[in-house]
Amino acid sequence: MRAVAIALATLLGSSINAAAAQDASVVIETGDVDRFYRIYDAAGGHPRADTLQRDYLDQGSEGLQRLARLRNVTGQSIADAITKRPEMYVQARDCGDVLPRVRERLAVALGRLQQAYPQMRSAPITIAVGRGKPVGVGSRESGVQIGLEALCANPWMNPDVEDRFVRVAVHEYAHVQQVVAFSEAEGVTVLAAALEEGAAEFVTELTTGAVSYAYMAGLVSGREASIETAFAADMDKTELSDWLYNSTPDKPADLGYWVGYRIVKAYYQQADDKQQALADIFEMRDPKAFLARSGWRPGTALGQ
């Protein structure tokens, strides 16, 4: 892995339409991964908490610093995670071999996003090593941070590790574009949170060809209408745990992501002006009004 930040435009090969991403200036930073494994190797796979804090976190990229602040990543928490799950950090080193190809594919996907949404907000994508979670974080203020070891350790999301990296990164990058982060507000409703996450899933499909949660199609198959009917009954609730942020490796869930994706896709498909529709998705401020304009109902048929 190269410990440098690369502008997306420089990654485009001759077989890719450079016009689709010529203005994309997103930086993908992986230097923190290289620094972590230098420290890790020097300590025989058991670095001390103070060493991780001083030589890894305190010397880290701006993205790693943000991740540490947002999700309580400390030298001690990483050392504890290494002790508890040493195999996760061994696996992450091999998993990281896909990053050069991930860079190339992200260049294409985000180039497509910029073409579809010319006002795309640029923010860095940092891939670093943390404490086993989170898998990914994305926001308008903080850019995107991906936990290498966490994403590598969650094959249930998508068995193809390269696809997993690309699509999770694009999902989080979509959050950077959203004017309102509903999930961070007090008293957020199931509908608002589902539309926030569903919009990110739709944008991932629009730019990469598939959503980030690959398991979802099998999970909902044959139950689509009943799931959406139950969602419609719960969408004004402020207790999210039945619909969002409730997946585990043993029990994948997060069905609110899927319903939100379906509502957003319905809105986009019925729109004559696709560029304006995408702007409406990112600039959504009133979830109920957006839902009404989407034409979605439980069991609504959508095109591909």
Rank of each mutant, 00 (worst) to 15 (best):
N72G: 09
Y257V: 04
P86F: 06
R131I: 00
F290D: 14
G187F: 07
P100E: 08
M216V: 10
A79F: 04
L255T: 09
R112Y: 14
N158R: 14
P252R: 09
R140I: 00
L12I: 02
K133D: 10
Y173C: 11
D272E: 00
V180W: 08
L255C: 02
G63D: 13
P252G: 05
V33Y: 07
Q53A: 12
M1S: 09
Y215M: 03
P155D: 04
Q91V: 06
V26Y: 01
G75C: 10
Q145H: 02
R85A: 13
P287T: 08
S61L: 02
S241Q: 06
Q269T: 08
D58F: 05
Y268K: 03
G143T: 15
T300V: 13
Q275P: 05
R164E: 02
R101L: 15
Y89G: 10
L67V: 08
L255W: 06
N158T: 09
V203L: 14
L302G: 07
V137P: 01
K288N: 06
V179P: 00
R2D: 11
P134W: 06
A116P: 11
A68C: 12
L191A: 02
V129Q: 00
F282N: 06
P118S: 04
R2L: 13
Q115M: 14
P159H: 02
L64A: 07
